[in-house]
Nucleic acid binder design. Sequence first.
DNA 1: GATCCGTGGCC
DNA 2: TGGCCAAGGAT
Length: 337
Amino acid sequence: MLAWYDAHARSLPWRAPPGSPPPDPYRVWLSEVMLQQTQVAAVIPYFEMFTTRWPDFAALAAADDAEVMSAWAGLGYYARARNLLAAARVVAREHAGRLPGDEAALRKLPGFGAYTAAAVAAIAFGQRAVVVDGNVERVVARLFALADPLPGAKATLRMLVDSITPDTRPGDFAQAMMDLGATICTPRSPKCLLCPLADRCDARAEGAPESYPFKAKKAARPVRHATFFWLEREGQVLLVRRPPRGLLGGMRGLPTGPWAAAPPQLEEAPVETDWTLRNASIRHVFTHFELHATLATATLGRHIDAIEGEWWPIARLDEAGLPRLFAKAVEAMESVA
DNA sequence: GATCCGTGGCC
DNA sequence: TGGCCAAGGAT
């Protein structure tokens, strides 16, 4: 794997060339958090923006929460951004601005689970650690033709990864396994002819490597319905800050009514006024449900106040840091107008 | 262990 | 078209 990595490693903004000293732990950490459940191509522009604006732990620890959340907008899984800030502040305050170098200490920081702690320990600090992500699970399940389905097989897979992890260049080994999974040992149509492990791959010997790993079936995704309220006043629209936890937690958004099994129409409008229900429909797929939203619009005169939220210039909504769901609503309004 | 938590790309 | 998947973590 190391020889293959020396020849075929992907060049990525957070990565050091194979065999060279480890890169800046801050950049390794930031990239690993962004890469959680997120593909490389989606991460690269966010990584460049973040490292330009906040080049180290001290800068990020001193940043405004709202600016960091806005910068993360569109990348998804917003708890990552909240934990990112919390971890940066712990590192700045309690660890003299440096990430601890061992896996157990890393694991205690917000946003560091088993994978991220192992990956940072291996890649940024050269520690031997068992790094298991979705790519590694797939590669190893195929290599050993593991018949047990995920997620139940995770403990077995971790033992198998441990059994093949070397003492030397553990960071390069981990990245080699992940590169292999991302480029060769892909979920569908794996490119076995290019794989350095093809000779010893049990799944390939069986003839259907793409059938691994076996997985339990997922539950069907229900549909929920909501109304988004577009309230205008003098070229501005009302935005609210969502609660700090839960779905899109801590992000700006349009006021919405309840998200229910049936269209809620004008329930929980931010103000009692003459709403117009539009027939523009917004569809957005989350991990566990699909949302169908309709828009209700209204315009206020200048003297109505005492409404919770921020009045935001409509012409500058692209700067509001709206998650995609609400950005879609803005697009729908632009097409209506 | 099961659920919740975004978004975009792919076939 | 829609189901699946992606460098997972928190509760």
